[in-house]
């Protein structure tokens, strides 16, 4: 019997004490264990930043890549082996600044992987600069007079860009977060899970207390229907995006891999690569 302990290794995270990322790590470990996955069936692909280190703290296959590129790498891994459970993860800088192009296109492509963003509204590893998730007016080392730019809205962005599973959670709510990650992994398509994961060292505004005060659980909204796209968008706008739970899910939309013409039934990685000589001769004739 696999338990979350099987997904633990002996590496001590270099996150600050109290960092929200610890809970995200624990939630992923619990979710995959609850789904009866084994460590070799999971690949965690991460970007760069404090949060990017997460692939090294989970005992599974893992690739800690380059800044902003976890998504295309994760999609390549999934293409190679569709039997693998692939989780991409990184911070808000990774996904909404340097990697924003990939984020939107991964949503639109709808490959069957799960993308977990550890959103702390600041750059932590480089010691406190503004992020695309920082609110306007937010004072950081790089915005001493307050951020001039507005903030990215991950949930609205995900819905309008075509992600078929869109959810948000808060790192202290381990049970809720674990359940959402499980649902995201089970969803057949691109799952976006934005997790408010406070930075206790550099973000003195969006603290644990601040989130507790400002977040609304979707489960407390009467008749909230996550399959209703319009309601999802309206609710997000009413609450300025500060909601938790499954915001939107389209269970009917086929994933990218379901739609590839000629895509092999078995994982590509288990194929024999030897090319057929008769096929080769046919291809040669086409050039004559």
């Amino acid at each position: 019997m696999v338990t979350f302990k099987d997904f633990r290794n002996d590496v001590k995270p270099n996150w600050c004490p109290g960092c929200g990322d610890f809970s995200v790590q624990a939630a992923i470990q619990r979710a995959v264990a609850n789904l009866d996955l084994t460590p070799e069936q999971l690949a965690v692909i991460s970007g760069i930043g404090c949060s990017g280190r997460i692939s090294g703290y989970i005992r599974s296959y893992g690739l800690h890549s380059i800044h902003g590129r976890s998504l295309p790498i994760a999609q390549g891994v999934k293409m190679a082996n569709k039997d693998l459970t692939v989780i991409a993860s990184g911070g808000d800088g990774d996904g909404f600044a340097i990697g924003m192009g990939h984020t939107v296109h991964a949503m639109r492509r709808n490959m069957d992987i799960t993308y977990i963003i550890m959103d702390n509204q600041i750059y932590g590893l480089t010691k406190g600069q503004t992020s695309p998730r920082s609110a306007q007016g937010f004072v950081t080392k790089s915005t001493p007079k307050g951020a001039i730019e507005g903030s990215v809205s991950p949930m609205e962005l995900a819905i309008t860009s075509g992600a078929s599973f869109v959810a948000q959670s808060f790192s202290t709510d381990l049970k809720d977060l674990t359940a959402i990650i499980e649902a995201g992994i089970q969803h057949k398509g691109f799952s976006v899970i934005n997790v408010f994961s406070p930075c206790v060292t550099y973000n003195k505004v969006n603290t644990y207390d601040w989130f507790k005060e400002n977040l609304t659980k979707l489960s407390t909204i009467e008749d909230y229907d996550p399959t209703n796209r319009e309601q999802a968008m309206n609710t997000l706008m009413q609450h300025n995006g500060l909601v938790t739970g499954i915001v939107y899910q389209d269970k009917d939309r086929p994933s990218y891999q379901d739609l590839i013409h000629g895509y092999a039934e078995e994982p590509l990685a288990s194929q024999d690569l030897q090319f057929n000589e008769d096929t080769f001769n046919e291809l040669v004739k086409e050039f004559m």
Partner: peptide, 11 residues
């Protein structure tokens, strides 16, 4: 990077 991911994935 997608090609890298796919090679890492074994193809």
């Amino acid at each position: 990077t997608m090609a890298i991911g796919a090679n890492y994935g074994g193809i």
